[in-house]
Write a protein that binds this DNA or RNA. Structure first.
Lengths: 212, 212
DNA sequence: ACCTGAACACCGTTCAAGT
DNA sequence: ACCTGAACACCGTTCAAGT
């Protein structure tokens, strides 16, 4: 039974979901495929090349069916949510994405659409590109932390209580008060709060809302 | 010649600067210290524990000599810059910090100071905590990308030209135009642009600039 | 063209035994 | 208390040889 490149890739993604990024191993992948551990190297030059293919595959279709007539802020927020969902769809997806250098095909499509939306907000080329970066760092950072907290050793103590125990009310009164008022760490509401911050900052940093 | 915990820690930081996070190895560290590779385990329970100590050491003094009378936005920006400088001071510092769960002593001091400043901007406990997270994700994400680009294989092709070559002007016109207008990738000016975005978004998301 | 089998040069971690 | 020496159970990668 012959191996295809697609088969190696999709099995790798399965293994990632099962065991996480740390335990994703060329040998484990080979075992899962039922081949010897040198076999995968015929299809992917290196583990790095495989990881890049996996990262780009996660972002497949990220710019499909965008509404070009929606207002710029809705498009920016929509793209941010699409990236977030793509990263959260697979275990350690955000960290996988963050560990790679940017220019993968689907990531470029995402960047193009984001910059286009920001140009419509009246930003210069430079500001649009830099703002796209800022939004992307936020999305990836947020998703990475969310997945990191979810994947912790958890010795009977979830991330929230570990954090609560580390905070001394006298040394960190504001942090302590905040923790008492924050229901769950991260999640959609938390994400939207920060995203709104960025989007609200855009008109203040741009000229008017006309093109060019 | 006896080993101290501090000696192991500071040598580990030296090795990190020399070889980067990927090549930072318990065995390499031991060799550098002139001991057998089991020796370090008497001082640090695991590599993870050592990495946490390294990350927290990077942030030493991050809240020293803050001006409590400065306006809130200057304090927020100041703390963001301090975190940025701390992360950039050591090779792969941002990725080291990002790979760890939050509650380290110096990181908590940073969080406390950030939330305090945001409370002075008129934010609720919840909003202040979430905004502090957003700023931190941005700072860490930006620094991580900056260090990632700096530490690439560089086969005669720096990160910028690799990106330029990957962009097709027909498929990604906005991206292509933006690249032509962006002098250097990242750096201080790039960082300040995104930070201003976040800080500008704060008043729009908060009530008035009075406490409670 | 595609895979096996085996090797090479590494890892983190543990632990009896020494001092 | 602190370290050695040696082992255990792994890694990613390469490559002659097979089919």
């Amino acid at each position: 039974m012959r191996l295809s490149k697609e088969q190696v890739l999709s099995t790798a993604v399965d293994v990632l979901d099962e065991v996480g990024l740390e335990q994703l191993t060329m040998r484990r992948l080979s075992a899962r495929l039922g081949v010897q551990n040198g076999a995968t190297y015929w299809h992917f030059r290196s583990k790095q090349a495989l990881l890049e293919a996996m990262a780009d595959a996660m972002l497949a279709g990220i710019v499909d069916d965008l509404d070009p007539h929606a207002p710029w802020h809705a498009r920016v927020a929509g793209l941010a949510h699409r990236l977030r969902r793509a990263l959260l769809a697979r275990r350690d997806g955000a960290r996988l994405f963050a560990s790679l250098f940017f220019p993968l095909p689907n990531a470029l499509d995402y960047g193009e659409a984001m910059i286009a939306a920001l140009r419509d907000a009246g930003m210069s080329h430079r500001d649009a590109a830099w703002t796209a970066d800022a939004v992307t760092y936020y999305v990836v950072g947020h998703a990475a932390e969310e997945q990191l907290a979810a994947g912790l050793p958890d010795d009977g103590a979830p991330a929230t209580t570990r954090l609560t125990r580390a905070v001394d009310p006298h040394r960190h009164p504001h942090l302590h008060a905040a923790l008492a008022h924050v229901p769950a760490p991260h999640g959609e509401e938390h994400f939207d709060h920060g995203l709104r911050l960025l989007v609200n900052g855009i008109p203040a940093s741009a000229g008017t809302a006309s093109a060019m």
